[in-house]
Amino acid sequence: MTTPVEPFDPLWLSHLAREIKTWGQQLGFAKVGICDVDLSAEEPRLQQWLDNGYHGEMHYMAQHGMMRARPNELHPGTLRVIAARMDYLPPAAGFASNLSDPNKAYISRYAGGRDYHKLLRNRLKKLGERINQALEQASFSDCGFRPFVDSAPILERPLAEKAGLGWTGKHSLLLSQEAGSWFFLGELLINLPLPVDIPLAEGCGQCVACMTSCPTGAIVAPYTVDARRCISYLTIELSGAIPEALRPLLGNRIYGCDDCQLVCPVNRQAPLTQETDFHIRQPLQQPELLTLLAWDEATFLKQTEGSAIRRIGFERWQRNIAVALGNAPASEAIVKALQQQLTLASELVAEHLRWALAQQQQKRQQPEAATTRKTARLIRGIRKGLPRDA
């Protein structure tokens, strides 16, 4: 990929930029923005985050050095990044009823439908092809585009922020006044000197709801997440045993966590997704923990086909369910199911099953504690703030 030498007319480039945003919306993106490739301001922050060890076992975060902040090194010749947003908040998400029932499994709402990676990448590819068609019609060479969706060493959130898609919230997610944070991001790297968009002003003010509601205290400072304490990291990225001290804090969350988004006031106006592929599949719609524990590997693979959940594999899936059952109210049915699984489980899963059995035994000896104030506050916030259909 090389930098184009054509003498582009600034007016033509401005027209093309507007067209790109229109084409993006026609392809299902809620919003499209454009930015340059200068992320030098992010490099010290990224290095400090890595130096603190906040990336945990996510060694790929450090593997490529500062390339994450240098898109033109990732794809030589890149002059601009087209950042795109696609909303994923599903209808009938059942946040409050799901989180308040400890016998049901909570799965982060981005993962209940089809895996977003391929869908967004294909749409971005189509957008790049449409841009090339426009260039060809104007007798220019192609834009040498390359799409990315959360699968390459690139800082997506800072690029989307520069492109005017939102501002960084204190939970480190991108926030938009009209869309909250319930959206996926994708990028198209190109070699066209398109006009860039203006970043939005930060809109969180003094609000710290996400920080105070994080079950494990993973948001250690505004805009800084220690992944090693984050439930999404613990249930998805961590390959080994979940630290015992953190297990009770996971509650019934077996794949990811949405708590910091659920309490965010900006999310109260978030729209529901227009993509039916992101709707929650029936087997994952507020499932019972015991039902999921009974799945064998073949059932797991069948029910999660085409889903982001598949990437953690069956062993981590069972590990996470075991922890959730340990956190569930005392039950003879749970004890019996845990004991049955012990005869089939790997050593990693067995260790968590034994922990869950011990937790169940303790609860049988002591009255079940009332719902914590933090969880009760979270549920009230969900019921008050989310779109009615969610």
Rank of each mutant, 00 (worst) to 15 (best):
A322E: 02
Q285E: 15
A298H: 13
D296K: 14
E297C: 12
N320C: 11
N327D: 08
F314A: 07
G306L: 08
L290W: 06
L325E: 00
D296H: 14
Q285V: 06
A322P: 01
E297Q: 15
K302V: 08
I312A: 03
Q285L: 15
A322Q: 03
R311T: 05
V323M: 01
T291D: 13
A328M: 09
S331F: 06
K302Q: 14
E297V: 07
T291A: 13
A324Q: 07
R311N: 06
F314K: 05
N327A: 06
L292D: 00
A328K: 03
L301H: 14
R310C: 09
S331C: 13
I309M: 14
T299H: 12
L293S: 00
S331H: 07
Q286C: 12
P329F: 08
E315Y: 07
F300R: 05
R316V: 03
A308Y: 04
I312H: 03
F314H: 09
N320T: 09
R316G: 00
R281M: 09
Q303I: 09
Q318G: 05
R311A: 09
Q303S: 12
P283V: 13
E315M: 09
L284S: 07
R310A: 12
P329L: 11
R281V: 06
S307R: 05
A330Q: 10
R316I: 03
A308K: 04
I321P: 00
I309H: 05
Q282F: 08
V323D: 00
A324S: 15
A324F: 04
L292Q: 02
L293R: 01
A330L: 07
V323R: 00
W295E: 11
L289F: 06
L290R: 11
Q282H: 13
I309R: 04
P287Q: 09
L292E: 01
K302G: 05
S331V: 11
A294M: 08
S331L: 09
E305T: 15
P329S: 11
T299F: 11
G326S: 04
V323S: 00
Q303G: 06
L292N: 01
W317S: 01
R316A: 04
W317L: 08
